[in-house]
Nucleic acid binder design. Structure first.
Lengths: 187, 187
DNA sequence: GTCGACATGTAAATAGTTACATGATTCT
DNA sequence: AGAATCATGTAACTATTTACATGTCGAC
């Protein structure tokens, strides 16, 4: 079974309720969906061109002085395309986790190494937690009538819950590792 | 900055304490690390060959009747290679989540569609939860002296905690969506 | 005048997946 | 006899990332 290219839907979704340039689109993703979806320059610009050729978006070049920006507007065909995809059941993903793999092989190195890995991640998580709080506050400022507000809230909520669970787990790991006195496997 | 190929370390790690054939190696991954790490045939066999050429593993063909299996044993260089990698700080990952993206765009479709997505995921999570319980029981049977036992426990624990947090979040989402009566954005 | 943000793209490489291809052995 | 599992691999494709390349505009 062929995999569908999901970048197209991420882009069409961002354009659904407002026309954007490639640059703006990336900036928005960076400030809203980064934690669960991201595109790079090298994926956004070529995909916008493809979508234009397919008639999913229309392009219009605007000028601010000499600086040109190509603003993309979604078409009805484009809207139909995303909404059809939104109804398709989301694939269950098992993304690779480098940290888990390293922990899984923890018996092959001295435990200080693994402890350090976990402590570093703990710190990162605490940072992320702050970020999510900031984002939550920003969303709270949007008027309750904004049709997307609820969905933004639920999306960040996922991040908050996830990071909390991760912190719980990390602390449990650290406690058990520090308690444990086993030697590492000979190498 | 060039990204390192992590498949090699996953494979070297699996070979660390016992020689395995490519087939066995994949089977082990499938039954132990699937939820956070997986390799396919098309990545395992070529990588084993590369590792052999690099002197990280040695190969020996064994026969069971006419059926040949190539068993790979890790070398000292191979062990040094993995252990060095294990000490490198694990990259923070923001894996793409199709479900999150679909939820984020939830305002563009009628809410029944999003509710269905979440309910499907809830069911999958409940299945996964059972699987983790089974795995936990299996690990519990290993002798406490087994040097890897603690790390196996901590790894599944991550899965358990994660799936519980996800279920909490999904229920919260479903409750709020069902309560909410907003109309979707015109399309 | 130079730094950072605005703005758009291409080229090359790498990683990862799917489909293909083959054949042996064991179990029912 | 046929299915499932054992066993190893390649070819083709698709996706994704990194690095490159270029130029504008506003603020300090």
């Amino acid at each position: 079974m062929k995999k569908v290219n999901k970048s197209r839907y991420a882009i069409l979704g961002m354009l659904f309720d407002q026309p954007l340039s490639g640059y703006e689109l990336r900036k928005r993703m960076l400030s809203s969906t980064t934690y669960f979806w991201n595109e790079t320059d090298a994926s956004v610009y070529p995909m916008l061109r493809i979508l234009e050729e397919e008639g999913m978006v229309t392009a219009k070049t605007e000028f601010v002085g000499k600086r040109a920006r190509k603003v993309f507007t979604i078409t009805q065909a484009g809207k139909d395309d995303v909404t059809a995809w939104l109804a398709l059941p989301a694939e269950q993903e098992h993304p690779r986790s480098e940290l888990l793999l390293k922990l899984f092989f923890g018996a092959f190195v001295c435990k200080e190494i693994t402890i350090k890995q976990l402590e570093q991640r703990l710190q990162q998580c605490q940072e992320t937690q702050k970020t999510f709080k900031t984002i939550e506050n920003e969303i709270a400022q949007a008027p309750d009538t904004h049709p997307q507000k609820l969905f933004w809230e639920l999306s960040v909520r996922r991040g908050t819950i996830d990071v909390e669970a991760t912190i719980t787990w990390l602390n449990e790991c650290l406690e058990r590792l520090k308690r444990n006195n086993e030697k590492k496997i000979q190498n």
